[in-house]
């Protein structure tokens, strides 16, 4: 493996190459022919200027805040309900068997088709986006927790019983921690889905948020605006992922590969 700084340099180089060639092919005609016509592809400089303008005017913060609120709500509601119901189903196999075909059906449904329904039911405000995000997050967490609790280490359960644990103590000391650990192991995926739900919801009908911003720009063939929205979104997601990684390392210190490891 190369050193940290060399790695960073190479990563930067990729970005420079990408944006450099984009700028080059969009502005310098080759044999009198522009490879990337700015009308369709814009230019990195225009995109950059647009982002700076948004930041200076301050209009972007409101949209970011709205998207963040929607994603956070979707994440919290989705993972909470996913954990609880996954846990319940795993402990009550009869219930799980009864609902099995319906759970599969719901999960097989492409969530985008639900967006108009949610918009009808919950209006164009944030709650229709939250609902869309919840339907995405819920299933990821639900399946993880369900499998995790159902297949809770048999030796661990036997050991807990032999140590004298009652059913309630088993729940508290064995099943619940293992459910939570499975919930956390799906943290990255579910946070990503929460953002997807929010942005897609905004894109399909709203008055604010990053998805709205991109959709508006697209409506007036403002390609620089579309790319600027995409880049802000990408940075936003990377930042959230960074925070999630920090939280994960904090919560899962007992896990191999998290924290210090064996010394």
């Amino acid at each position: 493996m190369m050193s940290r700084s060399a790695l960073l340099l190479c990563q930067l180089l990729v970005a420079v190459m990408f944006f450099g060639s984009w700028q080059f092919f969009a502005t310098v005609p080759i044999f009198g022919h522009t490879v990337l016509p700015p009308f369709f592809f814009s230019t990195p400089v225009d995109v950059f200027n647009r982002i700076v303008k948004w930041l200076v005017e301050g209009s972007i913060w409101r949209h970011l805040l709205i998207t963040l609120t929607e994603a956070s709500l979707a994440f919290v509601i989705g993972s909470l309900s996913g954990t609880l119901i996954g846990f319940w189903f795993a402990r009550q196999q009869t219930i799980a068997a009864i609902f099995d075909p319906y759970v599969k059906m719901m999960n097989a449904l492409p969530r985008v088709v639900l967006a108009p329904i949610f918009a009808l039911w919950l209006g164009l405000g944030i709650w229709s986006k939250v609902a869309l995000g919840v339907t995405l997050v819920f299933f990821v967490v639900f399946f993880n927790v369900y499998q995790g609790v159902k297949e809770a280490n048999a030796t661990l359960v036997d050991n807990a019983r032999m140590l004298g644990m009652s059913e309630r103590q088993l729940l508290r000391h064995v099943y619940w921690p293992s459910a939570l650990s499975w919930m956390f192991s799906s943290l990255h995926t579910s946070v990503g889905f929460a953002v997807v739900g929010a942005v897609v919801g905004e894109y399909l009908g709203s008055a604010a948020g990053l998805g709205y911003l991109i959709q508006q720009a697209e409506g007036v063939f403002d390609v620089a605006g579309v790319f600027a929205g995409m880049i802000v979104l990408a940075i936003f997601v990377v930042a959230i992922d960074f925070v999630v990684t920090k939280v994960e390392n904090r919560l899962l210190v007992w896990r191999p590969n998290a924290g210090e490891g064996r010394v």
Binding site: N153, T155, L156, D158, N159, A160, M162, L163, G164, M165, Q169, H173, V174, P177, S181, W254, R255
Partner: peptide
């Protein structure tokens, strides 16, 4: 019962793993 496979609670420290027997 001391099991053949590892049966410690992975989310508890060594101290908590031992203390749990009394806490129960």
């Amino acid at each position: 019962y001391l099991f053949q496979a590892d049966a410690l609670f992975p989310w508890k420290t060594a101290l908590d793993n031992v203390a749990i027997g009394l806490e129960i």
